[in-house]
Simulated scan of single mutants.
Amino acid sequence: MVRLTRVQQQARTRASVLAAAKDEFTEHGYAAAKVDRIAERADLTRGAVYSNFPSKRALYLAVLIDLVENARGEEPPAEAQSTAGALGVFARAWLERLPLAGDSASGGRLQLRSLDGVLDDGHVLAQVARLEAVLLATALERGGPRQVRLAELVLTLLDGAGHRAETAPGFGDPFDVAHACQHLAGIDLADAWAPPHLPYVAPARTCADAWTAPEGLVDQISGAPVGLTDGLVVVLGARRLGAAEEAVRSATPGEQVAIIVVTGDPEETGRLVRLRVTDFVDCLRKVFKPDPWQHVRLVLDDDALVASAIGLDDPDDETEAAVRTRDGVIVARAHGRGAGHAAGAAQKEAKS
């Protein structure tokens, strides 16, 4: 008889709980699902379920993450040359989540990654959506004018199509939605980046602080390891993700910007952010090569390793801080609203 290690047993138990939970949510939906039934399906105790997942919400989000990660493909980019073509391919990749006509209502919501009735506060979702728009716009701009408003408009249309599919399955044609996304590229939205007004943003403090950057960090966009020896490092709580654009716009050309996401609630808020980021980046990878984001790194720091390394205690969803590193030394620090912009401005002043 093969004796399993504790880690192997925990992994097996977790996999059993996820499989049982997926069946429960598919059959009953989130609201009507019962943890007791999930435990019974997995042939485990209720306590064993809660020892792996602290709440039904955390378990539901874990099921969705597992679904997204298992569905990820290695399709090569479609090499769309124009903005309109790229938006059409992106929209079709996003619309693949729409349920099929024969899917059950509960199963269809799971396929849609529906969060209806799951979350009490939509503020984090709004911030994640702003981050998504920045990532899509970065690929669309290709060194040209700002395209964040266009990205926001496309994501609004796609999100609306998802809600329509949830409330009225089978209504409308997804190909029409993708076609409409292509035509949005022709609208002049007069988009322009308006940086924060510096008098209201505390300036970065220059310093020469030795630090040890955490190892093993992974970029969610490219899947490559992340080094923090040189560049701008911005730590953002889940309710401040929209500030990522300030850092990206403020950095000098070619400088690495590392967006580090933290949260005071890794089990629920952290899983929510991971779900949305993983799902969104999977769509981006089906359209674009990693080149547009070669100077942007996105790290989901569930254990707050980077925050701790730069001296932040107890980071939470409202955290906003930034440091500028050079040759492994922190040379500037900023904290509070506009921190990424302040640190970016400091590095530009230092180079001028």
Rank of each mutant, 00 (worst) to 15 (best):
S106H: 10
G122Q: 11
L150N: 05
V118I: 10
E152L: 02
I65N: 05
A133T: 05
E166L: 04
G108I: 00
Y60C: 05
V177R: 10
R109I: 00
P174C: 01
G122T: 07
V128C: 03
A86D: 00
Q147V: 08
L136A: 08
L158M: 00
E132G: 04
L184I: 02
Y60R: 06
V118Y: 10
A165K: 06
A139I: 03
L98T: 00
R72A: 10
R146L: 11
L115T: 07
A101L: 12
L136I: 01
L112F: 14
H163R: 15
R97K: 12
V89W: 12
D120Y: 13
L150S: 00
L140T: 01
A86H: 05
A137Y: 03
L67C: 00
Q81F: 06
Y60H: 11
D120W: 05
A151V: 00
D176Q: 13
L153N: 13
R113G: 13
G143P: 03
V68H: 08
F175Y: 07
V89I: 03
C181T: 13
L61P: 00
G88W: 10
N70D: 15
V154K: 10
E69Y: 10
P169Y: 02
F90T: 00
L135W: 03
G107F: 04
A180P: 03
I65T: 05
R72S: 04
L158C: 11
S106C: 07
V177G: 03
Q111D: 11
E74K: 00
L67W: 08
L157K: 13
L155H: 12
